[in-house]
C-alpha cells in the first residue's frame, strides 16, 4: 500500500467539521468525564498537594508552626532512626510476603489446573481468604497468635520451636512473622487466581506436542509452562510488591508497628504519623520517600522484564 501524505485542502473545498464528526469526537468524553473528574479531584490533586506537604510544616496539634520549611522534613527523616528501621522492615516484610505468596500461589494454581472431583467447590473454599476483609484477617490472625485463645503458640511450643507458649506478637525478634503469616494467608489466592487464568490460556496441544517430542513432566513445566507464565508472573509480582509495600492495614491492626517499632514499615509509619500525631508534613515526607523507592524498584523491574520476557 502506498501511503500518501495527507492531502491538503483543495481550493474551494470546505473543511467545516460536520455535526456527525462532533458527535463522534465529543461522545467518549461524555461517558468518561465523571470518572476523570472524580479521580482528578480525589486522587491526583491530593497527590500533588501531598507532595507539597512534605516541604511544609503542617502539624494540626501545633498550629503555630505552619509554613514552608524547604527540605527540613527530609533532613529530619535522614537522622530519624525509626525511618531507617522502618525501611529495613519494609524490605523484609515485602520480600518475605511476596516470595511466600508467590511460591504457594503458584503451587496452588498448578494443583487447581487439572480435573478432579469437587474442583469447583475446593477452588471456591481455597480462594475464600481473599474475600475476608483485611481488618478481619488481621484480627483473626492476631487472635490465633494470642496465647490465651489462639492455638499457634501452643503448637509451636509442642513442636519445640518455642520454649513456652508466649505471645509471638510481643516478641521484637518474632513479631514480624505475625503480619507476614496473615498476609500470606490473605494473598495466596491473588497469585493463584491470576496464575491459574494464565495457565488455562496455554493451549493444551502444546503439551501434547511436547509429549510427542518425548518431553518429561518437568521439561514440560520448565520449557512450556514457565515461559508462558513469565509475562503474567512479571506483572503480578511487580504490582503485588508495590501493593504489599504500601499495605499498612495488617501491621497497624496486629501490632501497631510495635513492639519497639520491630514491625513498623514505612507505610504504617506514614499512617501512625498522620493519624496519631497529626503531623502531616512529616508523614508526607515519609510517603514521598516510599514513593521514590517504589519508582526505582518499578524501573529496575521493567528493565529486567524487557531483557528476559520474550513472549
Amino acid at each position: 500500500m502506498n501511503v500518501r501524505t495527507p492531502t491538503t485542502v483543495a481550493p474551494g473545498e470546505t473543511r467545516a467539521r460536520s455535526p456527525l464528526y462532533w458527535r463522534y469526537a465529543v461522545e467518549p468524553f461524555v461517558y468518561l468525564s465523571p470518572a476523570v473528574i472524580l479521580i482528578t479531584l480525589v486522587m491526583l490533586v491530593p497527590l500533588v498537594v501531598g507532595i507539597s506537604y512534605s516541604f511544609q510544616s503542617i502539624a494540626i496539634l501545633n498550629p503555630l508552626k505552619t509554613g514552608w520549611v524547604g527540605f527540613d522534613n527530609y533532613a529530619a527523616l535522614w537522622s530519624d532512626g525509626k525511618f531507617w528501621t522502618a525501611l529495613g522492615n519494609t524490605l523484609w516484610w515485602t520480600v518475605a510476603s511476596v516470595t511466600l505468596q508467590f511460591g504457594l500461589g503458584l503451587g496452588l494454581a498448578l494443583l487447581l489446573n487439572r480435573h478432579f472431583h469437587f474442583r469447583r467447590i475446593v477452588q471456591a473454599l481455597v480462594f475464600l481468604p481473599w474475600a475476608v476483609p483485611t481488618f478481619l484477617s488481621a484480627l483473626t490472625w492476631a487472635w490465633l497468635f494470642n496465647p490465651v485463645i489462639g492455638p499457634i503458640p501452643h503448637w509451636l511450643a509442642a513442636l519445640g520451636i518455642l520454649a513456652e507458649p508466649e505471645n509471638i506478637l510481643g516478641d521484637p525478634d518474632l513479631a514480624m512473622w505475625g503480619p507476614i503469616a496473615a498476609n500470606v494467608w490473605f494473598g495466596i489466592p491473588f497469585f493463584a487466581i491470576t496464575l491459574l487464568a494464565a495457565l488455562q490460556s496455554i493451549p493444551g496441544d502444546l503439551y501434547e506436542a511436547a509429549e510427542m517430542d518425548g518431553a518429561s513432566a518437568w521439561q514440560c513445566f520448565t520449557k512450556i509452562t514457565l515461559p508462558f507464565l513469565a509475562p503474567m508472573i512479571a506483572i503480578t509480582v511487580m504490582l503485588r510488591t508495590i501493593w504489599i509495600a504500601n499495605f499498612a492495614d495488617l501491621i497497624f491492626v496486629m501490632t501497631g508497628g510495635g513492639p519497639a517499632n520491630a514491625t513498623q514499615i514505612l507505610s504504617s509509619y506514614v499512617f501512625t504519623t498522620a493519624f496519631r500525631k497529626l503531623d502531616f508534613g512529616y508523614a508526607s515526607a515519609i510517603a514521598v520517600a516510599l514513593l521514590g523507592l517504589l519508582l526505582v524498584y518499578a524501573a529496575i523491574l521493567l528493565k529486567i522484564r524487557q531483557k528476559f520476557v520474550k513472549i
Partner: peptide
C-alpha cells in the same frame, strides 16, 4: 471509542494504582 487523550487518561488511571494511597491521606483529611 478512539479519541485524543485516551492514552493519557489510561496512564493517569494507572498512576493512581501505583502510588501509596497513604500519601493522600493527609490532603484528603484536610
Amino acid at each position: 471509542f478512539r479519541f485524543r487523550g485516551k492514552k493519557l487518561i489510561i496512564g493517569l488511571m494507572l498512576v493512581t494504582q501505583m502510588f501509596p494511597l497513604l500519601m493522600i491521606i493527609a490532603p484528603i483529611y484536610k
